[in-house]
């Protein structure tokens, strides 16, 4: 029974995430536009874009190789798998035993490297520029994520996302300085990983300021649809991750029935909406920073992660 419920919630979760991901992107765009006094596109617009792009045959540069053709699939696959591992409305999904934070970091790296290689493939200047910057940012973001994981591992005794969410949901953890610091770390990493302002601008049209977009300048048609979809998935995955760790209320317990799921779903939608609004407000209020200011930003996140761990050592030493 437990196994059956696990599989069922996993399938429902998959359907929810895969459908909702472009909607979330659309929602953030709409909210940002409203905050800036524009009317903004309909939230369904990303889905329309995807459909339109899929109908077009991709144009591939003559200088490109098979890497350009396979990279978007690898990236989408990695992003999909990572998104399946992050709980949305219920814990105890079928894939919960492998929902390890380090594995999620590895899958994100897989997608990132596929994208960087695709950027380098055609031998164009902007692709290389974007790839070099993206990999440099990741060099700071990844250790920050691992240090945040260290704090969770000390508090919950585990790096498994499902187990951490369970421990946090039980509320025995309390409000801690370390957790607040870890939240800041995760937020900074999420901003960098999703190429949002102030690290990168998802809507930029100036090639020299691009990081993420520069790598997919050559992509078109189906390939561009895949790249856009994986970007939406990553945004959803990160917001869901933050919601599951720091706003764990409402998550249905393992083995709970449909009523708890409905409650969890409502809470999840509420949380994602709130986070999307927060993201839109933050992006509207702040300016993009210089490229060489980013390492300071992410380096500060890294050190805060270290600080969080240091405070945990103190408090676990005291207990």
């Amino acid at each position: 029974m437990q196994a059956f419920i696990g599989i069922l919630t996993q399938l429902l979760h998959a359907a929810l995430i895969l459908i909702a991901a472009p909607l979330l992107t659309g929602l953030v765009r709409l909210l940002k536009a409203r905050l800036m006094g524009r009317r903004g596109p309909h939230p369904l617009q990303p889905w329309h874009d995807l459909r339109k792009l899929l109908l077009k045959r991709p144009v591939v540069a003559e200088t490109a190789s098979a890497v350009t053709i396979f990279a978007p699939w690898v990236a989408v696959g990695a992003a999909m798998l990572a998104a399946l591992l992050v709980p949305s409305f219920a814990r105890g999904m079928a894939l919960a035993p492998i929902a390890d934070l380090i594995l999620i970091a590895g899958l994100l790296a897989l997608g990132r490297i596929a994208m960087a290689l695709a950027g380098l493939d055609a031998g164009t200047p902007f692709g290389g520029l974007g790839a070099a910057r993206e990999m440099a940012f990741a060099a700071f973001a990844e250790p920050a994520l691992i240090l945040a994981t260290l704090s969770f591992a000390i508090i919950a005794g585990n790096t498994n996302l499902d187990a951490i969410a369970g421990a946090f949901q039980d509320g025995a953890v309390g409000v801690r300085v370390s957790l607040a610091l870890s939240l800041l770390v995760l937020l900074a990493v999420a901003v960098a990983e999703n190429a949002r302002i102030p690290v990168d601008n998802p809507a930029t049209h100036l090639e020299l300021t691009m990081v993420h977009e520069a790598m997919i300048l050559e992509a078109s048609g189906r390939h561009l649809a895949l790249w856009d979809y994986q970007a939406s998935l990553r945004l959803t995955l990160w917001l869901a991750l933050i919601a599951a760790l720091f706003l764990p209320f409402g998550l249905a317990a393992p083995g709970a029935g449909p009523l708890a799921w409905a409650l969890g779903l409502a809470a999840f939608l509420l949380k994602m909406g709130g986070l999307a609004l927060a993201l839109a407000v933050f992006e509207s209020a702040i300016a993009k920073m210089r490229v060489f200011r980013v390492p300071e930003f992410l380096g500060a996140a890294l050190l805060l992660g270290l600080l969080a761990a240091v405070f945990l050592f103190v408090s676990t030493g005291l207990a």
């Binding site: 045959r57 144009v59 591939v60 200088t63 164009t124 200047p125 902007f126 692709g127 090639e207 050559e218």
Partner: peptide, 10 residues
């Protein structure tokens, strides 16, 4: 399939 064309590179 795909169509081959010259690199765009803006």
């Amino acid at each position: 399939g795909v169509v081959l064309g010259p690199a765009w590179a803006c």
